[in-house]
Design a protein around this nucleic acid. Structure first.
Lengths: 213, 213, 213, 213
DNA sequence: TATGAATGAGGGTTCATTCAT
DNA sequence: CATGAATGAACCCTCATTCAT
C-alpha cells in the first residue's frame, strides 16, 4: 500500500462532536481564522491554560461564534491536530517519494527535518499531543499512522526487511524524528545547530547499519 | 572534574517559593507522604489537571497541611523535580563510573536505560518538565546539568574530543535517552521492547562513529 | 477656572483593572444592580469583610456575572468610588454656585452638610477610602480634587487670598466636612444634632476669621 | 469628677475572652513584645490583613505562644486598644491640668496635638477603631470616655456652661482633634503643617465664641 | 447566524484556631 | 509553657459552556 493511499484513506480522528461543516464561504473563512487563533494560543500556553475566550478574541470573533463551529475545546484541538497531521503526512509522503533514490545521508537529514519543519510551523502541536487532554485513542491512531508512513519510507530502502524488524526500526526512527523537533524547540540549547547535525549523524549511522550501506 | 563532584555541588533548583522545611519528625513524614502523593497525581493527570485537593486527599492530609509545606502548586512540583533529578543524577554518576571500561554496546544500553528506569519510577516527571508551568530557568538549569553529566560520560571514552563537539554529542545523546524513556512510556506501541533495542542500536552505531570503535 | 469646568474634565480614577463596559441593555442593568449591591455590602462590612459572593447574591446575580463586569473586588470598589465622587463633586459644584452670594452661616452649614448628605446616601464610601485596599494614588487623586473644589468655593468669598493660604484653608475646611460626616454616622452619639450644629458653628467662626466678616 | 478619677476607674474594655495575666517576668516581657509586634502589623496592614502568624513571627514567638496570651485576634486588638487609650487618657489628663490657666490659643494647639502625638506613636490605632472589627460597644465606651475627658477640659474654662451645651461642644472639639490626627497622617497633603495650623486656628476661633474670650 | 451575557462548579490559596508533643 | 503541625471553612477568581436576544 502506498503511503499516498494511506493518507488518502485517513479518517477523521475523533468520533466525538464534530464541527458542522460551514456551508458558506464566510463560514469557511471564519473556521480558518478560528483554527489559526487556536493554533497560536495553544502553542503559547498549552491546552489547559488556553482559554476559549482568548482564542475567540484573537480570531476577532465572539465566544458564541467559536462554539458555533467547535462545540468543545477538545473538538477545536482535534481539528487542529487533524490539520497538522495532514501537513505532516504530506511531508512524509514527499520524503517517501524520494526515499528509494536519495543518498542515505540526505534521507537521514530529510527525516530529521520532517517534524522540525512542521513543528515550527505550529509549535503547539506537541503541547497538544502530550497534554493528556486529547483522547488517547486519537493519539494512538496518529502515532500508528506516522509509524506506518515511516515504515513505508524505510521499506523503499530495504524491501526485504521482515515486517517485525521494519516496524521496530520505524518506531525508533520516528522517535528520533521527534527528538530532532524537540531539540529544535529548545531555545536554551547552546550550539543547537551542531547538536541537530549530530542527531542526523546518529540517524545516518543507524540507517547504514539497519538498511545496509 | 569528576561527575561525582559535579553532583556534590548541585544547588537547589527553585528560585522563589521554597518548600518550608519541617522541623518535627511528624512534619518530615508528612512531607514525604505529600511528595509521594504529588508524584502520583502529577503523573496521572499532568500538572494542570492535578489538583492540590486531590494530592492532599491521596496523602491523607488536609489541604491546609499540604500548603503548610508547599506554599504553591508549583513549589510542590519543583520539590518533586528536584527529588527526581537527584535520582537521575545519581544514575548518571553510576554510569560515568563505569563508562571508561565498559564495552560500548553495554554503555549504549545503560544510557538508553538511564531515564527509562528513573522515569518508570516516577512517570510524572516528564509531564512536569514539559507542562510549561515550571520556571523556564529551572528547566534550563536541569537540562544543562544533564547535558554536562552526559558530556562527562562521553569524555571518558573520548578524552580528546574538542569541547564543542563533545557538547553537541552530549545534547544528541541526551535527546536519544529521552526518546527511549518516551518510548517506554508509550503503552500503545506494539513491539516496544524490540523498538527500544533498536534505539540502543542507534545509539551504539552513533557512539562508534563519534567516539571511535 | 470655574469648578464646573473642573468637574467636567475629571478623569477615570482607576489605573489598572477597569470595569468591562456592558454593551447590551441587560448588561447595563446588571451593572447598576451590582454596583448598588456592592455599595450596601461594602457599607455594611467594609472592604475586607465584604465578600464577592454576598454582593452577587444580593444583586440576584451569579458570581460569574459579577466578575464579568468587575474583574476584581478592587475594581468594583473603584467603580463605586468613582460613582460616589461624581455625586460629591456635583454637590460641591452646587455649593460653589451659591457661595458668593450666600450669607456666611448658611455657607458654613452647606459645607458641613455636603458630605453628610452624600455619605448617608452611601455609607460605605468612607470605609472604602480608609480601608487601605484602594490604590493610594487613587485616594490621593480624590482628595486633591476635593481640596481644589473646596478651594474654589472659598475663593468666591475671598478672591484675593494668596494661593498658599487658600490651599491650607481648603484642607482644613475639607477635614471639617469629613468630621461632620463622621459625626453624622456615629449613631451612639447622644445629642448628635446639637453636636453637628456645633461643628457648623466652628466652621462659621473660622470662616469669619479667615475670609473676613 | 476629675478626669484623673475618670481614668482611674476605667474598666477593662472587653468582657470577651481576656488574656490570662502572665505570672512571671518572662511572660510579661513576652506579652509586651507581642503587643508591640501587633501594633506594628495592625498599623501596617489594618486589622483584617494582619495575620496572627505574621504578628507572632515579628515578635520572634511561635503562633502557639501568641495564642497562649491572646486567645483571639480580636482580644489582641482589644488589648492594644486599651493600651493606647491609656496613653490618650493620660495625655488628656495632662491637658486638663493646665486647661484653666493656659492662654486660649495654646489650649487650642494642645488639643489639636493631643491625638496627633499619640497617633503617630501608633498609627494602627485608628485603623482598628474604624475597621468595623472591634466590638461596637467597646468603641462606644471609648468614645464616651474621650468625650467626657474633653468635656472636663472645657469645663475648666467655662464652669457654668449647661451640661448639654458642654457635651455638644466636647463632641465637636473631639471630632476636630481627630481631624488633626487624620490630617497629620495624610502624607500626600502638600502644606500639611500650614493646614494643621489652620485647624488649630479653627478650634481657637470656636473656643473663643463658645467659652467666651 | 452572531453576539455577549449568564451560570456555577471547581481551583488555588489563606488563616484563625486547635492540639499533640 | 512553648512549639509547630493540623485543620477546614471560606475566599477570590476562572472558564467551559449555555442561552436569550
Amino acid at each position: 500500500m502506498s503511503s499516498q493511499k494511506a493518507s488518502a484513506t485517513r479518517k477523521p480522528l475523533a468520533a466525538a462532536p464534530e464541527a458542522k461543516a460551514p456551508s458558506r464561504r464566510r463560514g469557511r473563512e471564519r473556521v480558518a481564522t478560528l483554527l489559526a487563533a487556536g493554533a497560536v494560543v495553544f502553542a503559547d500556553k498549552g491546552f489547559d491554560a488556553a482559554t476559549m475566550t482568548e482564542i475567540a478574541a484573537r480570531a476577532g470573533a465572539s465566544i458564541g461564534s467559536l462554539y458555533q463551529f467547535f462545540p468543545t475545546k477538545a473538538a477545536l484541538a482535534d481539528a487542529l491536530l487533524e490539520q497538522h497531521m495532514n501537513v505532516v503526512h504530506a511531508h512524509l509522503d514527499a520524503i517517501a517519494a524520494q526515499a528509494a533514490t536519495q543518498p542515505l545521508p540526505e534521507l537521514a537529514r530529510a527525516l530529521c527535518n520532517a517534524l522540525v519543519a512542521t513543528r515550527s510551523a505550529n509549535p503547539g502541536f506537541v503541547a497538544l499531543l502530550d497534554s493528556g487532554n486529547i483522547d488517547p485513542a486519537v493519539i494512538a491512531t496518529i502515532r500508528k499512522a506516522m509509524r506506518q508512513q515511516v515504515a513505508a519510507i524505510l521499506q523503499r530502502r530495504a524491501p526485504h526487511l521482515p515486517a517485525a524488524e521494519l516496524a521496530a526500526a520505524a518506531a525508533a526512527v520516528l522517535q528520533m524524528m521527534k527528538s530532532a523537533a524537540a531539540m529544535q524547540a529548545d531555545v536554551t540549547l547552546p550550539g543547537r545547530e551542531a547538536a541537530l547535525a549530530e542527531l542526523a549523524q546518529m540517524l545516518h549511522a543507524y540507517l547504514q547499519v539497519r538498511l545496509g550501506g
